[in-house]
C-alpha cells in the first residue's frame, strides 16, 4: 500500500503540474480538493484520466470522483479494489 501511495503521489504531481511540490508534501489523509492541495474540477477530470491510463480503471460518472478522490488514501484504496491486473 505504501508503494502505491508514493507512486500515486508522483503520478498526481506529474499529471496535475504541481511544480515545486515533493511527494511527501501531499498528506495521505488530507482532502485533495478545496483545502489541502486546492485542486479544482479540471484536476478531478484529469485524475479520472490518470486512473484509466495507469490502472485501467474507468469512471463513467464524474460524480463518483468526489468520494474516490477525497484523499490520497481513498484513492489508493479504490485502486486496490478495482485494479484489473
Amino acid at each position: 500500500m505504501e508503494d502505491l501511495t508514493l507512486k500515486l503521489k508522483e503520478q498526481i504531481i506529474e499529471a496535475l503540474n504541481l511544480e515545486d511540490m515533493e511527494p511527501d508534501e501531499i498528506e495521505t489523509n488530507e482532502p485533495l480538493f478545496n483545502e489541502g492541495l486546492g485542486l479544482d474540477s479540471i484536476d478531478a477530470l484529469e485524475l479520472i484520466v490518470l486512473l484509466e491510463k495507469n490502472y485501467g480503471i474507468k469512471i463513467e460518472n464524474p460524480k463518483d470522483g468526489q468520494k474516490i478522490f477525497y484523499s490520497l488514501k481513498t484513492m489508493a484504496e479504490y485502486i486496490k479494489e478495482h485494479q484489473i491486473n
Binding site: L16, I42, E52, K53
Partner: peptide, 9 residues
Amino acid sequence: YFPGPSVFV
C-alpha cells in the same frame, strides 16, 4: 487514446 481535459481547456 487518453484525451486530457487539462490540456484541452
